[in-house]
Design a binder for these strands. Sequence first.
DNA 1: GATGAATGAGGATTCATTCAT
DNA 2: GATGAATGAATCCTCATTCAT
Lengths: 210, 210, 210, 210
Amino acid sequence: MPRKTHDDSLETRKRILESALRLFSRRGFERTSLSDIAKYSNVTRGAIYWHFENKEDLFAALCEELDKDQFSGSYLYEASLGHEEDPLGKLRGWLMMMIDPQSTNYINSSIFSMVISIINGGSTNELLKAKVMKFAQSRRDFISAVIRNAIEREQLPKNLNVGLAVEHLGMFIVGFMYQSRINMTDDVLKNFDLVVGKEIDVLKTLVNQE
Amino acid sequence: MPRKTHDDSLETRKRILESALRLFSRRGFERTSLSDIAKYSNVTRGAIYWHFENKEDLFAALCEELDKDQFSGSYLYEASLGHEEDPLGKLRGWLMMMIDPQSTNYINSSIFSMVISIINGGSTNELLKAKVMKFAQSRRDFISAVIRNAIEREQLPKNLNVGLAVEHLGMFIVGFMYQSRINMTDDVLKNFDLVVGKEIDVLKTLVNQE
Amino acid sequence: MPRKTHDDSLETRKRILESALRLFSRRGFERTSLSDIAKYSNVTRGAIYWHFENKEDLFAALCEELDKDQFSGSYLYEASLGHEEDPLGKLRGWLMMMIDPQSTNYINSSIFSMVISIINGGSTNELLKAKVMKFAQSRRDFISAVIRNAIEREQLPKNLNVGLAVEHLGMFIVGFMYQSRINMTDDVLKNFDLVVGKEIDVLKTLVNQE
Amino acid sequence: MPRKTHDDSLETRKRILESALRLFSRRGFERTSLSDIAKYSNVTRGAIYWHFENKEDLFAALCEELDKDQFSGSYLYEASLGHEEDPLGKLRGWLMMMIDPQSTNYINSSIFSMVISIINGGSTNELLKAKVMKFAQSRRDFISAVIRNAIEREQLPKNLNVGLAVEHLGMFIVGFMYQSRINMTDDVLKNFDLVVGKEIDVLKTLVNQE
DNA sequence: GATGAATGAGGATTCATTCAT
DNA sequence: GATGAATGAATCCTCATTCAT
């Protein structure tokens, strides 16, 4: 039977999004059917279509949602604030959470395989691509703010190539994520603080060349 | 139609594998249908089933094939040979080829999205998973050989944490690959030699900690 | 939201019926969804169900509505009145309006495609069929009255086969309608007065045979 | 199990087309599902998709098929031949067959409701529309040839407005068809030879006006 | 009176797979 | 060795309909 109140409706929508996140990130966009999501959320397929236009739109909405709160309240968010005194330290803390299964950082990361599947996989829906891109871009922007903050606080050199640094961090994050999925040896997990430290060290050296 | 010779048959098989590589790496495993591959290879779907048991088997065969010659004749291959005098230099050269669309390194790299899609995507075919894992492992082994070689030649420190180094390089490669798919800024491409240089610098420091 | 007055309610009902007429006649019964009608009327689907039992009932109501005023105030209506002195002239005028996109005659005509879609399309709702039939019959009755009137006024022969004449006119109207939808050449539109004239000439000859 | 030989395949295709004709003309395009057609032809839905790209393509193929043989061997065909001495007589004979349930003329006629549903119903498939148009045009061409033939044989006046005549006949045919579906009185069926005669009489008068 | 939420049946379409030839 | 035909299950999506509010 239909949900009665507006709140019930929001609750349903939330349940669908949560299921979608879980299943998409577990099995990928293609291998997850709306049926799966419906079952997992205890709603009918029709309900999904009430809240979202189609499967791609659901994904786009998911991206938007994650975009909104992927960093809120996180170390990264704090690191991006102007008054933060140790942005680099916070960034480091945020990176360290990538190996903590409890953290949203950990969960959100898994969404990236979908991002790539959508962008690269030949979806012809330009609107969807745009939203997904925006999601990816948002992370860039956040990191960019943190880096600028760190320059301000003289934790990073003045002549840093900010664009390059942002991208380098992106490679680091994505690279870790994927490797860890395939079959990462314990070596990395055990030495993750070392690895993160090296990444930050490298960041410091990515200055503009004459 | 005339009975095909053994050579013709091999040729067909090769054409199918090539098409599969191209299409899988372009659109992903799920979004590529056997129909697509058949069309692209100018054979019928039936022909694919003559050469391969099913779609997953085709993918596994592809992995095996790539495994065989993904590094043969490449800088990486040379770097792994015992008599190579500058293994680190060759490794560097190999990494640099990741931005060259002509190189097999470039093409093969893109196969990794599939690897992840298979491993992560919930395929229940253990045999397939095993083959795919083996493929991924093979790259590890090769890189491992190179690194040992470099230690031998004193280009890398004796107390290097080899496993960690291998994994770090893996993260670097995969990270670059995926970032470049999403929307990498020119910053990285323009400074790719710098970036590769930093990675090698980091490698040198990944020593076992007391 | 405020409780609507009785007038508001009638207005809503009217809006729905108007939209239904427009959309049904444009796209046909099947291809028009209640959603389409709701959007076009700026009401919700639920509102439609308040006023009508279901889609078929909406259609039936539409037929009844059209039935009521399809001819009121038109030349045909005037032609059917006992005191009309030139019924055949009025009939002619009414037919001429079939090529005038502004006239209701033009619009109502297009409702016939639906009528056929319902009758022919295998609806199992006998009540609906009856209503639709009644609608079609109503036109017959009107035309019949006009023809009798014309006989009275000696514009048509006494021994006219009235049933046949009515049907012949029906064929003429429907035939024109459909042909003009497919791809009628200008020949007909340019010579429409001639064509209408011929139809009336024929009418005059449809007398009972010995 | 799959059909074995090429002939079997043609047989399957034919069965599908026949079922489609029967069901489409009985229930209309929209109300006929591919499932219905599959069941009626004793094949699976998949088989339909082997032979036709989609539902619209099936319809287009049906039109093409009907186009090919809608007039072959009929009176109309004979009437269109240059050596026919009584084209108008044959035309008349062809028209008379519209009330014979056994004749293809009778069956084919019913396809026109679909034609209109497609053309008018908002299909966005331009290719389909073109094919359907071609089907409709083909009838025009045939009738046109007959009329020219009749002029040649001096059965129709030299200064006949051929385009108008063709269209008038079209209106007559379609008009009859639809009226007979709704609820035509016996008056027309009983007097059909009279009605057809009148139509031919009218044809003779559709001359170009000064 | 009307809305918003949800259902569920059914429809078109895709696609891996099978198999007689 | 390879093809063409066919199957059938799964998937996305639409839509009439219901009903608590």
